[in-house]
Each structure stands twice: as C-alpha cells, then as structure tokens.
Simulated assay, not measured.
Amino acid sequence: MARIGIFFGTDTGNTRKIAKQIKRKFDDDTMAKPLNVNRATVEDFMSYDFLILGTPTLGEGELPGLASEAQEESWLEFLPQLEDQDFSGKTIALYGLGDQITYPTEFVNGIFHLHEFFTERGATCIGNFPTEGFGHEFSMAEVDGEFLGLALDLDNESALTDERLAKWLDLIAADMGLPALAA
C-alpha cells in the first residue's frame, strides 16, 4: 500500500486536476491514486499516516458541498463522518484553490476550515506557504504572512501553478518522507 493518501473535494474539477498533477510526480508505492471525498470511506481515509488534502473555496468562503451549492456532495458531507476520529500521529498537508480577484476577502478560506477541523482532532498540519505575490485582501487561511497550505488561483494566475506546486512539494517533502523533486 502507498504511504501517502491524497484526497480532494471539488466542484468544477480543478482541485481534482491538481491532485492528479501531484500524483504524477510520485510512484504508486509513495502515493495512492487521488480519491474524491464523495467516494471515500472513513476506512480509506484513516488508513494513511500521511495525507494531502485539497479543496476549493465556494460562496462566501465555504468548503464545497451541497449546502454551499456545489454540484455534488463533498467536504461538507464527508467531514461529519470523521468527527469522532483521532488524527494524532497523522501528518496532513493542505492545498486550496480560490479566486483572489473575484473573492478577495474569502481567498482560499477552505484551507482554514480543513486545518481547523483536523488540528482540533490531533493532526499535525505542515506545508505553510508564503502569501508574497498574491493579491487578495483577506484570507482566514493566512497566519503571520503565510497560508496554512498551498494557495492556488487557477482563474487569474494559472501560469504560476507549476512553480508554486513544486515549491510546496519541496516544503513538505522531508516531513512526509518524500524524495526531493528534480528541478
């Protein structure tokens, strides 16, 4: 079995696209095939000590799910299944997608919501990413000049995605036992 699980919630498919992009950088022994949380079980999720979790931010800074007008069930429906789980000893890296121009005061708030949920249950979250170069006004996911995970804006800065993703994967590599990526 792979050592790292990668799970995502999505609405338009962009978060899935990033999950697949991450997976392509690693072999099957290192990282499992990405799995949408609307198809995941608690057992799938809990079988990994290392997790990479992705989410878009919808509406007024919400996680995706039916209540936030996503097209399918997602994080809002899956997280309640995990409420009683103990994440002590698990290491989690988060990435989030947002639109800093259209939603400058809710940019990647989904990262914050996942970070809060999992750290309250004992997880260690890694992979804070610098806010330098972003044009948002406010984000709940910003603490001391860093996002609580990788922030991506595919709507306005898609040309920066590969560079930001490579930088983030290098940041989390040692904590997850990942090999360094070739430059």
Rank of each mutant, 00 (worst) to 15 (best):
G110H: 10
K33W: 07
F26T: 08
P80R: 05
E77A: 09
D86A: 03
S68L: 02
G122N: 15
E43I: 01
I101G: 00
L63P: 00
K20F: 05
G54P: 04
L63C: 00
V42H: 00
I18V: 11
L76P: 00
T30Q: 09
R16E: 14
Y103P: 00
A70Y: 02
P80D: 04
H136C: 01
K33Y: 14
R39L: 12
G96N: 08
V37F: 04
D144P: 07
S139Y: 02
A32L: 09
E73D: 09
Y95D: 10
T41Y: 04
G135Q: 12
K17G: 09
G54Y: 05
H113P: 01
Y48C: 08
A19E: 04
Q81H: 14
D86G: 02
T91D: 06
D99I: 07
W75G: 05
T119D: 06
H136Q: 01
D27R: 10
H115S: 14
L82T: 08
Y48D: 07
T10M: 06
I22C: 02
E132R: 08
S68I: 01
I92W: 05
D144F: 10
S68V: 01
L97N: 03
R24Y: 03
K20M: 06
Y103C: 01
L51Q: 06
E43Q: 11
R16V: 01
F112R: 04
D144M: 12
K23A: 13
L79Q: 10
D11P: 02
I52T: 13
T57R: 07
V42I: 05
Q100S: 11
L94Y: 12
E120W: 07
K90P: 07
E69V: 12
G127E: 06
G127D: 08
I22E: 00
G59M: 11
E60F: 12
D44C: 06
T119A: 06
S47W: 02
